[in-house]
Amino acid sequence: MKSIKLCALFIGFLSLVFVKTLLAEEEYTLGSGDIVRITVYEHEDLNLAARINEKGNITFPLIGEVTIGENTVAFAERIISKALEKGGFVHEPQVSIVIEQYRSRQVSVLGEVRMPGKYTIEGASSIIDLIALAGGVSDKASEFAHLITTKQGKPLQIRVDLHKILFDGDVSQIVDVDTGDIIFIPKMDRFYIYGEVQRPGVFRLERNMIVMQALAVGGGVTPRGTERGLIIKRINSDGEVLEIDASANDLLIPNDVIYIKESLF
């Protein structure tokens, strides 16, 4: 049920993401390959469209070659404005820059999404935008996503709590993506239950799930079973299988195996 809600909320949540994306557009960093349209108010002869070259430069009337790459749109506007005024060409120029075409930027979305693959992003895009482009998460998806990116030339992995974003509206969990990033959605955490239970098998491990809730998911014990003497088989950090005497309120962790004994009476 939680996985179905998680999938559905990706559609309903897009309105909230859209607002954040609009704000993030202002922080987009210009780069090589971007095509920009530059307008100088009341100076139509200076208006032009230009592609930023590999050095981050464009050639602008009167001021020549100017570097605007690796800057936000607002900062690039100020660069051109100051150059025009410093050169004595325009008094208090009002410069406006609009991005007409973004350079080709791709992000890979892998794992438990409906349409894994590479997606081209335009402008500022978040991890939620890319998961939505990939069709949303599958029914077997975890509640967490992993963003593999780089920071200052070093690889960095960020764990994103999709549950907090979609169920709690926690936009602080939303992170932006950039060229070459990888988004990976792992399979859901699971637990196993067998023995004298109505529906033995493998089930999704919900957040903060306890043994009592797991028994309910498994349909409860059979008439021959007993909730006394429950055993959890758990793999420790050394790969050893431990047998733990469990109670109904014990918290489960991923890959726990619950065994329901047969009643002796």
Rank of each mutant, 00 (worst) to 15 (best):
F75K: 12
H163W: 14
K82N: 14
G88T: 06
P61W: 15
S108W: 14
V137L: 02
F144S: 04
S142P: 00
R105D: 09
V95C: 08
E77M: 04
P155N: 13
K86H: 13
E143C: 03
D161T: 07
K154T: 12
A50Q: 13
E112Y: 02
K55W: 15
G88H: 12
G169V: 14
N47W: 03
H43T: 03
E85P: 03
A49F: 00
I165Y: 00
G153K: 13
K55L: 12
H91V: 06
A132L: 06
A145R: 04
K86P: 03
G153Y: 15
A83W: 15
R51F: 01
V95T: 09
I148Q: 09
N53M: 01
L62T: 11
N47V: 01
A141V: 10
G56M: 13
Y119P: 00
K118A: 07
I148D: 04
D139G: 11
I52L: 02
E65N: 12
I158H: 03
F60V: 09
K82W: 11
E44W: 05
I52H: 01
G117V: 00
T150P: 01
V73C: 07
I79D: 00
F60G: 06
R105M: 14
R78K: 13
I127A: 05
I148S: 11
H163R: 11
V107L: 02
I80W: 15
E143Q: 12
L133K: 12
P155W: 15
R114N: 11
S125T: 09
V98K: 07
L46R: 04
I148A: 06
V107Q: 05
I148T: 04
V95F: 12
H163S: 08
A83L: 12
G69S: 08
T67G: 07
E92N: 10
A49D: 04
G87S: 08
G123W: 01
V137D: 00
S96G: 02
R103S: 05
S104A: 11
G88L: 12
K118L: 05
I52V: 03
E85S: 11
I121P: 10
N47K: 03
T67Q: 09
Q106W: 15
V73L: 12
I63M: 02
E54I: 03
I97A: 05
A134E: 11
P61R: 09
Q152Y: 08
S125G: 03
M115S: 09
G56S: 07
L46V: 00
I68P: 08
A132G: 08
V137A: 01
I121K: 02
A74T: 12
P61I: 09
K118Q: 12
D45N: 10
V66I: 14
E65P: 15
K140L: 08
S126V: 11
F60D: 05
T67M: 12
G169A: 10
I99P: 10
T67K: 14
Q106E: 10
K55P: 02
I127K: 04
A145H: 02
V95N: 10
L84N: 05
T72C: 07
R114T: 04
D161Q: 04
V73G: 06
Q94L: 12
D161H: 15
Y119W: 01
A145T: 05
